[in-house]
Design a protein around this nucleic acid. Structure first.
Lengths: 245, 245
DNA sequence: GACTGTGAATTGCTTCACAGCG
DNA sequence: CGCTGTGAAGCAATTCACAGTC
């Protein structure tokens, strides 16, 4: 797949494709651009302007251009971006061409839904194993995968070169599961349990807390209500915010 | 991203408790502080230092103190914060004392899980209605609620003073559902569908895209892999990031 | 002495505005 | 002429460091 130069690390001797040093905020938006690009691609667009792509991704065009400029120069002045080329570039940067193996721990209410979510498979990931600690759940089949006991994690991780784990257990179990994942060599964790995880410095954790998202909206409701109660009732708009840090 | 400030309008005459003008970043962290405080409260702590609370919430103490200072002065120098008092304050600011009514549209795979998620009920919300467009799903009972046809949304919204809606439909249906919600008077939307929604300026949208979270982790995996392949193998740590904008 | 609250310094992100290219 | 790529300006969030308070 792609060749690639830019963003060489200070001491890089240039043999290995040095990894571009992207701002976190940009990284968090690349997946959204990718989604928009796939959509445009399916709609038959071969090229797209920064303005058009920005609209499809819900950002403004200056931000989009700056973000993409960090990846290198993949646009054509006077024309726009080549949709297919940009898709390849972003997928390469995100490491999606590798179809990473993901395991899911905790097959309760939410875990069940995640195990059956086809968005993972269609967007670059393979769920390769489901784990739970509850004996009653072991052996259950979900979407072609059998739920195994958490003790088997180490063995499966070795076989599948698991790098990403998803935690969908209750908060009380999450830290122990995170420890198990780390011990099994997992270096990225997506945590749905409402708690903070402690992990070694080389492990990345992202947290999604559904109640927190609602609470943030609740704040804005509260604010809007108190504003309309006031004299200068401006139409007072907050708007589309995407999750990401 | 929300453009546009909140907070007291220039001419506010101050009769109504003017709404504090909090930075977005602070707002997004308040729910996490609240969760940590409830945890500490259950563990029997009556007071907590900024250091202790920061650790429990996964942030550093300077940030926490600055965040809380925006709410007013609820700490005692030399001692720390009163846990119960701070819980009340944050719940008030977030508008959680009102136990807001929430409806959920789309009772598929993910919607099912959300409907059954007790974290909503336990953290300030009442799910009061479930909707779907698929006739086969109408009438189904989940967690004591009956799935209704989306056409009933307007009537239910009026009865329950619905302000928040959750969209868990496929992307193809999401915009139409958003339009219906807006028409029914909903002014805050939590969107799980992988697409950008267009809504009036007074409506807030937050988006959660599960595949995007994994893709961000995938990027970090890719980066870590390419770094360890390089000479100066720094221990290269990114770490705990919470979702929020 | 311990710990909060906060100005000042810093870092990072976004937006502007335009030069440069196709 | 249209549109990208980017320095420079502007803004927001984080961190520092310490004065103020209990």
């Amino acid at each position: 797949m792609s060749q690639q130069r830019h963003g060489s690390t200070p001491g890089s001797t240039g043999a290995v494709p040095a990894f571009p040093d992207l701002p976190e905020a940009t990284i968090a938006r690349l997946p959204e651009y990718l989604r928009a690009l796939h959509y445009l691609s399916e709609s038959g667009s071969d090229t797209i302007s920064s303005e058009g792509l920005a609209t499809a991704a819900g950002v403004n065009s200056a931000k989009l251009r700056k973000d993409l400029s960090h990846l290198g120069s993949y646009g054509t002045r006077g024309v726009g971006y080549d949709v297919a080329l940009l898709i390849d570039q972003i997928e390469y940067i995100l490491g999606l061409d590798q179809r990473r193996a993901v395991c899911l721990v905790g097959v309760g209410n939410l875990g069940h839904a995640l195990a059956g979510y086809d968005g993972f498979a269609s967007r670059g990931f393979r769920i390769v194993a489901l784990f739970d600690a509850d004996p009653a759940r072991i052996g259950e089949k979900i979407n072609g995968l059998t739920v195994r006991h958490i003790d088997e994690l180490g063995r499966v991780a070795a076989e599948e070169s698991l790098a990403i784990g998803v935690i969908a257990t209750p908060a009380s179990a999450a830290q122990a599961v995170a420890d198990d994942l780390v011990a099994a060599g997992v270096t990225s964790i997506l945590n749905f349990a409402p708690c903070v995880l402690t992990v070694p410095a080389n492990v990345d954790v992202r947290k999604v807390d559904l109640a927190i998202e609602l609470q943030i909206l609740s704040f804005h409701e509260h604010r809007k209500a108190s504003l309309t109660a006031l004299p200068g009732g401006r139409s007072a708009a907050g708007n589309q915010e995407a999750v990401g840090s």
